[in-house]
Design a protein around this nucleic acid. Structure first.
Length: 108
DNA sequence: CACTTGACTTTAA
DNA sequence: GTTAAAGCCAAGT
Protein backbone atom coordinates (compact mmCIF):
# COMPACT_ATOMS: atom_id res chain seq x y z
CA UNK A 1 0.00 0.00 0.00
CA UNK A 2 1.49 3.25 -1.05
CA UNK A 3 1.43 6.19 1.22
CA UNK A 4 -2.22 6.78 0.68
CA UNK A 5 -2.15 9.80 2.90
CA UNK A 6 -4.53 11.32 0.44
CA UNK A 7 -7.08 9.03 2.00
CA UNK A 8 -6.05 10.15 5.48
CA UNK A 9 -6.43 13.74 4.46
CA UNK A 10 -9.89 13.09 3.10
CA UNK A 11 -10.82 11.30 6.29
CA UNK A 12 -9.75 14.20 8.46
CA UNK A 13 -11.46 16.76 6.26
CA UNK A 14 -14.65 14.73 6.38
CA UNK A 15 -14.51 14.88 10.16
CA UNK A 16 -14.49 18.65 10.13
CA UNK A 17 -17.66 19.75 11.92
CA UNK A 18 -20.16 21.66 9.89
CA UNK A 19 -19.66 25.36 10.24
CA UNK A 20 -15.98 24.94 11.03
CA UNK A 21 -12.85 25.26 8.98
CA UNK A 22 -9.35 23.92 9.18
CA UNK A 23 -6.02 24.61 7.57
CA UNK A 24 -3.70 22.62 5.37
CA UNK A 25 -0.93 22.91 7.92
CA UNK A 26 -3.14 21.59 10.71
CA UNK A 27 -4.00 18.49 8.72
CA UNK A 28 -0.45 17.99 7.60
CA UNK A 29 0.75 18.33 11.16
CA UNK A 30 -1.92 16.00 12.49
CA UNK A 31 -0.92 13.36 9.96
CA UNK A 32 2.74 14.11 10.63
CA UNK A 33 3.22 14.80 6.98
CA UNK A 34 6.77 15.87 6.50
CA UNK A 35 5.72 16.94 3.07
CA UNK A 36 4.14 19.95 4.66
CA UNK A 37 0.87 21.53 3.79
CA UNK A 38 1.41 21.50 0.05
CA UNK A 39 0.60 17.85 -0.33
CA UNK A 40 -2.64 18.39 1.51
CA UNK A 41 -3.65 20.87 -1.13
CA UNK A 42 -2.46 18.48 -3.78
CA UNK A 43 -4.55 15.75 -2.22
CA UNK A 44 -7.54 18.03 -2.38
CA UNK A 45 -6.91 18.39 -6.05
CA UNK A 46 -7.65 14.70 -6.36
CA UNK A 47 -10.64 14.94 -4.08
CA UNK A 48 -12.86 16.13 -6.88
CA UNK A 49 -15.92 13.94 -6.99
CA UNK A 50 -15.39 12.63 -3.48
CA UNK A 51 -17.30 13.51 -0.35
CA UNK A 52 -14.49 15.73 0.76
CA UNK A 53 -15.67 19.16 1.89
CA UNK A 54 -12.62 20.90 0.56
CA UNK A 55 -14.39 24.18 0.99
CA UNK A 56 -13.85 23.79 4.72
CA UNK A 57 -10.12 23.73 4.17
CA UNK A 58 -8.40 27.06 3.88
CA UNK A 59 -4.90 28.34 4.33
CA UNK A 60 -3.67 29.51 7.70
CA UNK A 61 -4.83 33.03 6.97
CA UNK A 62 -8.37 31.85 6.50
CA UNK A 63 -8.20 32.74 2.84
CA UNK A 64 -10.04 30.65 0.27
CA UNK A 65 -6.90 29.83 -1.60
CA UNK A 66 -8.55 27.05 -3.52
CA UNK A 67 -11.72 28.82 -4.48
CA UNK A 68 -10.38 29.03 -7.96
CA UNK A 69 -10.37 25.25 -8.19
CA UNK A 70 -14.01 24.77 -7.35
CA UNK A 71 -15.16 25.21 -10.86
CA UNK A 72 -16.51 28.60 -10.03
CA UNK A 73 -14.58 31.21 -8.02
CA UNK A 74 -17.57 31.86 -5.80
CA UNK A 75 -18.62 28.25 -5.33
CA UNK A 76 -16.41 27.82 -2.29
CA UNK A 77 -17.73 30.94 -0.64
CA UNK A 78 -21.28 29.90 -1.37
CA UNK A 79 -20.67 26.53 0.24
CA UNK A 80 -19.15 28.08 3.33
CA UNK A 81 -21.94 30.58 3.68
CA UNK A 82 -24.42 27.77 3.24
CA UNK A 83 -22.89 26.18 6.33
CA UNK A 84 -23.22 29.33 8.38
CA UNK A 85 -19.68 30.52 7.81
CA UNK A 86 -19.35 34.17 6.94
CA UNK A 87 -16.94 34.91 4.14
CA UNK A 88 -15.77 38.35 3.23
CA UNK A 89 -13.20 39.33 0.65
CA UNK A 90 -12.38 35.65 0.10
CA UNK A 91 -11.53 35.35 3.77
CA UNK A 92 -13.31 33.49 6.56
CA UNK A 93 -14.72 35.89 9.12
CA UNK A 94 -13.80 35.06 12.72
CA UNK A 95 -11.52 32.43 11.32
CA UNK A 96 -9.91 32.04 14.73
CA UNK A 97 -13.31 31.21 16.16
CA UNK A 98 -14.23 28.77 13.42
CA UNK A 99 -10.81 27.20 13.25
CA UNK A 100 -10.96 23.50 13.90
CA UNK A 101 -7.82 21.67 14.86
CA UNK A 102 -7.93 17.88 14.35
CA UNK A 103 -5.33 17.29 17.02
CA UNK A 104 -7.59 19.09 19.47
CA UNK A 105 -10.97 17.64 18.62
CA UNK A 106 -9.88 14.18 17.57
CA UNK A 107 -7.69 13.95 20.65
CA UNK A 108 -4.09 12.98 20.31
C1' DC B 1 15.12 11.70 -17.18
C1' DA B 2 15.52 16.85 -15.41
C1' DC B 3 13.15 21.01 -14.51
C1' DT B 4 9.12 23.71 -13.20
C1' DT B 5 5.07 24.47 -10.77
C1' DG B 6 1.95 24.14 -6.86
C1' DA B 7 -5.36 24.53 -3.02
C1' DC B 8 1.26 26.00 2.04
C1' DT B 9 4.06 27.40 6.06
C1' DT B 10 7.77 29.36 8.61
C1' DT B 11 11.76 32.08 9.39
C1' DA B 12 14.77 35.87 8.13
C1' DA B 13 16.04 40.51 6.59
C1' DG C 1 5.28 45.78 9.52
C1' DT C 2 6.14 44.19 4.89
C1' DT C 3 8.68 41.59 1.55
C1' DA C 4 11.93 37.77 0.30
C1' DA C 5 13.68 33.23 0.44
C1' DA C 6 13.82 28.43 1.88
C1' DG C 7 11.64 23.90 2.78
C1' DC C 8 8.67 20.10 1.99
C1' DC C 9 7.01 16.23 -1.77
C1' DA C 10 4.42 15.01 -5.83
C1' DA C 11 2.73 15.52 -10.49
C1' DG C 12 3.00 17.65 -14.94
C1' DT C 13 5.72 19.13 -18.95
Amino acid sequence: MQRDYFNDVYDVVRQVPLGRVTTYGAIARYLSLRAGARMVGWAMNSSHGLDVPAHRVVNRLGVLSGKNFFGHPTAMQELLEAEGITVNDDRVVAFDRLYWDPSEELTV
